[in-house]
Every structure is written in C-alpha cells, then in structure tokens.
C-alpha cells in the first residue's frame, strides 16, 4: 500500500509496472486517473492550485487504503495525488488497485476515489477569467461516498 503526495507528474505505465512486478497472484489491476478540466461551473479555468495538509493528508489516504483492504480481497493499492499549480489537461490523481480478480479491483478503485474526494484534505483554487476562486464541495461527491457506508 503506497501513498504519495507530490508536485511532480506521474507515469501511469511505470506505476502499474511497479505494482504488478514479480507477483503472479495478481490477475487484475484497475486504475483511475483524474485530470484538470478547462471548464468548471461555466468558467474557463486557466490554472488550478492544489493545497493540502501535510501529515494529515497522507494519513487520511493511508486510512482509506486500509479500509479498502478490509472491504475487498485486494493485493496492493497505490494513490498518488499532486499538489501545487496545475494546468488544464494535467494529471491530478492516480489510484491503482491490484487483486486476483477484477471485481475487487474495480470496486476498491472506485471506493478509494469516492472516499478521497470527500475525506482527504485537499483544496482546489481555480484561476478563471473572472479571478481566483476556491472550488466548493459538491453534494454529488458526498452522495457517491455514502453509497459505500
């Protein structure tokens, strides 16, 4: 189980290769990559800045992975979340889960993302044509997380 919060970009292929390397019990890897969109709430986004709470963010992510491991028979899981300034089309987040069978990998990957969006301390600030604004939390994200309770 690996958690990384970093300014640098990540390489999905390289991360998956590391996740599956040398473990022939793995029959499935599901992954999710989140990207910066150029349009949010009807405003053009020129740049976005991701802020986090060093220490708590890593701890919250590790707890989410631990919960996933208790809920499904997964072999390993990885979360990489970027912070700092990002541009449209940049990668923000990677979640990857390995398991023996696809069902657990798919479910755990979705669970980790839903919990990350509502429980991990990150905050987005967008630079738009109308100025800078903090992104508001969406009720639909909380509803998505509640599906797993």
């Amino acid at each position: 189980m690996t958690v990384r919060v970093q300014y640098e970009d990540f390489d999905l292929g390289a991360e998956i290769l590391k996740l599956r390397h040398g473990n022939s019990k793995i029959g499935a890897i599901a992954s999710f990559v989140g990207l910066v969109r150029d349009l949010n709430d009807n405003a053009r986004v020129a740049e976005m800045t991701l802020e986090h709470y060093p220490g708590m963010t890593e701890k919250a992510l590790a707890e989410i992975l631990e919960q996933a491991k208790q809920r499904w028979c997964i072999i390993d899981a990885l979360v990489i979340h970027r912070v700092g300034p990002l541009k449209p089309a940049d990668q923000i987040v990677l979640v990857a889960v390995s398991s023996a069978h696809r069902g657990a990998a798919f479910a755990a990957c979705e669970f980790i993302m839903d919990y990350l969006k509502t429980r991990a301390p990150f905050w987005k600030k967008e630079q738009t044509e109308a100025g800078a604004r903090w992104v508001d939390a969406h009720e639909s994200d909380e509803a998505a997380a509640q599906r797993w309770v």
Binding site: L50, K117, R119, P121, K124
Partner: peptide, 9 residues
C-alpha cells in the same frame, strides 16, 4: 486545524 469541506481528486 480549521478548513472548508475538501475538494481534492
């Protein structure tokens, strides 16, 4: 720590 609802991902 005090903060607004989180908006990562």
């Amino acid at each position: 720590a005090f903060f607004p609802p989180v908006t990562g991902g």
